[in-house]
Design a binder for these strands. Structure first.
Lengths: 210, 210, 210, 210
DNA sequence: GATGAATGAGCGTTCATTCAT
DNA sequence: AATGAATGAACGCTCATTCAT
């Protein structure tokens, strides 16, 4: 029975390294952006030879796709759970906002930002991992529709425009410097921005403001 | 006394060419994005030698900085005129929105988008041309403050957060596909997004919605 | 006394695997040529690890040398049997031609072709396995000499030139497309080419042509 | 009028260097074969930077195609002149043989040999420069047909097989070592091989042999 | 000043070979 | 003995920058 153990050990090590690689990718992406992230630098930082990197991911693009796919899966797994039917549409959307943007460092949001804005890469990635992205986007869309039907949100604004605004206004990249300077916490900033967005689409104000 | 004349003639030609170069940069940037814009292509399209390009701008980055600097100066010159004191803060901000994003083609907005998103380039650029950007930003900031004092806008939201949201939500890039698909006009989209933003910060709804 | 048995068992397995490897090499060589035959592919097709391949052959080149060496040994063993003394020199040479080039598929000829033409590889190979090649070549040489003495072949042509021409004109690779297109059978082509060669060196025409 | 002069000077230098590059390509190809000829080595031997090589030829393949195209054009220009109608077919073919294979060094033949045998490269090249190659081949074909009609050559042998044999038997690569060892001159070897070929296809013997 | 030929560091990718297990 | 993960030198190619003319 030593074989399976051995194999799963190897497999475990492999996955651990893959994790390590993806971790480094995250760092470098955040520092340098997509185009300036070189396979050499990733390999060096991981502490492996460049060839080894290619044992895990056959192309740079594959590596990046894997990275973002994983990132989006994390979000999806958080938001894919059914929410109570009596929950307001806004509350449901707030759950999604937190899944997407509320990690302590604010990295998640920055990465999504890079994903959505990385020039040429964007197109390819969207083709390859459209599914996961679409599923997230569809979820948001359905809650926005629901909110309009329930008269939570302004029915005069096209849902598709609400959807686009959801992703652009809530992206924390824009607000990055604020919580990096320490003036506001990441959480504070997100709360204010949510308030702007939801009031903007006709939603209610948080209780504390009444 | 022929020297000064000669020199200013030369100088005029020089500036004309610089204009031409920056014009071409706009085209190529919009077509290909920052990273895929090569010095070769710019020189070719302008009809000058690559070396000549480097007489005007010592580095690719300098060229890009100059381009965006000029772009922001255009905006600044439009919004720098004093507005009637009895104009509402929101109306004043709408003037700025239109200066920034409302050219018929939507090019301006796309360029600002490229500017704000061009990976590593962004950081450098902000260092070099912070002044102009700051002056635009200060203008927006002062109108936001004014609006809060006049009770047009929600005083509970920090102005700095309103400011950041102003730039992120109103960026038309996010909505690009919408008016490129023809579903909505550029103007329609901007109107809806403005509505979301201004209502979001506590502003009034446009008259038509009352 | 169990050791020798064990060892010879191991040895037998080893040789069987070596056979298997060389078989696979044949396939891949024919499909891809020398340079595009990778150690990875060979190991995969054999079903062993790449490291194991290197236990048998220390370098890619060694593997190739071994393969061609064996190929030539096969030819040698066929042509090494003594032929009837009253057989004409031409008939004897035709036996060799058939040993070298006449397998149903035409594979043998293609392999010799690859051997003789594999760019840099050729030189090294000739050094390492000159012996077997020389023995084949000597056989041909002796029959050519014999034919000249018996007045079968033109005594004015240096035997060494006859020898070189023997290998070049009879290589079926040159004629490959012909029998691959189906216009002529492999056998037809070989017969015509033999006719050209033997008449060329002064030999008789086949009976059917008289 | 200095401009045209200047330009043609530049152009001249450009062509001179292109010549130099193609010369180096010839050397390296003969030494290492197609696959082992690297752009780095070519550039180094020419004494220019790698990038400069790419100013002349956009891809390795283009460089190789250019090289072989030029080589074949040389042959074509020699054999494309009309020959006297009363010349025998064999004499006409001998003109072609000399054009193809009779340079003092025997390099030409070796290069054609590399061209015809360079594994993957062959296919691409044949596509790109099929025309020139076809024109040479057609010329040979037409003379062979002519010879058969005039009863110079054996009408029982298919012309296409004569054609293939023409290129394979007369390739001097096979005979390289002979004249490299000094035993026979390049010219001697070619004369003997021609004799074998032409007698082989039913042609007459040279006068000296009667 | 204007040119554009020349440069060379850097990129993503491959693969024969090694070596810890 | 057998494995296959790991290596790293080498490849073809690009492009911002320089510099002789």
């Amino acid at each position: 029975m030593s074989r399976p153990v051995h194999r799963s050990l190897k497999e475990k090590q492999r996955q651990e390294r893959e994790e390590l690689i993806l971790h480094v990718v995250e760092d470098v992406l955040l520092e340098k952006g997509y185009r300036d992230t070189s396979m050499d630098e990733i390999a060096n930082r991981v502490g492996i030879a460049k060839g080894t990197l290619y044992l895990h991911f056959a192309k740079k693009e594959d590596l990046m796709v894997a990275f973002f796919e994983r990132e989006m899966q994390k979000i999806l797994s958080t938001i894919d759970q059914p929410l109570p039917a009596d929950m307001s549409a806004q509350a449901k959307l707030e759950v999604i906002v937190h899944a997407m943007y509320s990690d302590p460092s604010g990295k998640r949001g920055d990465l999504l930002y890079i994903l959505f804005n990385s020039e040429d890469f964007k197109i390819t990635l969207k083709e390859k991992s459209a599914t996961t992205l679409t599923r997230i986007s569809d979820k948001v869309l359905s809650y926005l529709e629901e909110g309009k039907q329930r008269n939570e949100f302004d029915p005069h604004i096209p849902t598709i425009i609400m959807l686009n605004s959801f992703f652009s206004v809530l992206s924390p990249r824009a607000h990055r410097r604020l919580f990096q300077s320490g003036e506001y916490s990441h959480m504070d900033v997100m709360r204010y921005v949510e308030r702007i967005y939801f009031r903007g689409i006709g939603g209610r104000l948080p209780v504390e403001d009444l």
